[in-house]
Design a protein around this nucleic acid. Structure first.
Length: 287
DNA sequence: CCTCTATGATAAA
DNA sequence: TTATCCTAGAGGT
């Protein structure tokens, strides 16, 4: 899935394209027809990301929010009419890791027809945003939005994040640290890549019980996630290798099972843990 | 055609 | 721990 950095980028793009306008919402696929009717034609007040949760605000007597969670393979595709620069596709990782600004080639009618199973289309004067494959897509109230946020741990990308909540949650758990990092109520926005890579960069054994990790190392882990995730949000790409190792690729261990570790040369390992694949280097990660 | 996989999360058993 | 949901692409038959 798109991890938290992607969702923050999406919030920024959607805000840039639609804040202060009243896009027409529709559900070409049909599965969000009711929700689209609730928000269509309402003034958009912008979008905000909290971990992997995306909220798009619409003005109303009581404000309405479109809550979107991309799940494993949701994605947004954007197109402009040539008067605005838009990021073309953000979300599911398969085709593209980065993004590029593309507008429709001259001569192609705006808006372009929806491609694939488009759950929601937001259509503005100069830009269109199509959402496909979300795990969650619904219209909620402000109270409901706040309830969703209340269940999340601090988000390292957000300036208002309180790391003490992360430290306390880590201290409370006996599950492996690798499992705790994937728990969105412990820390919001971390997914399988940032989990594997941050544990490598910290030299931590992923199986160490959460509460056994020394406080100084938990602090370092948080700081490192702040750095790498904010960079991911800024660039649109996850790169966790330090400059000296970056010739080996963007990752130290993620999807590198069986390959030599970029630092020590020993084979990177993988195993199934709590339903997700965990990657680590047994010799670099002993802490 | 089929099966598998994927940066996710939840409900049921 | 397994099943299930969401979608698209890659690979095999």
């Amino acid at each position: 899935m798109p991890e938290g950095h992607t969702v923050h980028r999406l919030a920024r793009v959607i805000t840039e394209l639609f804040r202060g306008s009243a896009p027409i919402a529709s559900s070409p696929q049909g599965r969000f027809a009711g929700g689209a009717a609730l928000i269509s034609g309402r003034m958009c007040a912008g979008a905000e990301a909290y971990g992997k949760q995306l909220f798009v605000a619409f003005e109303s007597a009581d404000p309405l929010f479109m809550q979107v969670h991309l799940g494993l393979y949701g994605s947004w595709t954007f197109a402009g009419d040539g008067t605005v620069a838009v990021s073309h596709a953000i979300g599911a990782p398969r085709k593209r890791v980065g993004e590029k600004d593309t507008n429709l080639p001259a001569g192609v009618a705006f808006p372009p027809p929806p491609r694939g199973q488009v759950r929601v289309r937001l259509l503005g004067q100069h830009a269109v945003a199509d959402l496909t494959g979300p795990a969650v897509c619904k219209v909620i109230t402000d109270a409901e939005r706040q309830a969703v946020i209340a269940r999340l741990g601090p988000d390292p990308i957000r300036p208002d994040a309180d790391p003490r909540r992360f430290f306390a949650a880590i201290d409370r758990r006996s599950t492996p640290i690798a499992v705790a990092l994937m728990d969105q109520s412990v820390i919001a926005g971390v997914g399988n890549i940032y989990r594997a890579e941050s544990l490598f960069r910290a030299g931590l054994d992923p199986h160490t019980p959460s509460r056994k990790v020394a406080a100084a190392r938990v602090l370092a882990l948080w700081s490192d996630l702040v750095e790498t995730m904010r960079r991911g949000a800024a660039t649109g790409t996850i790169v966790t290798t330090h400059d000296r190792d970056s010739a080996g690729g963007p990752f130290y261990v993620y999807r590198r099972q069986g390959l030599p570790c970029l630092v020590c040369g020993n084979a990177v390992r993988a195993e199934e843990l709590a339903g997700r694949k965990l990657y680590w280097c047994p010799s670099c990660q002993r802490g």
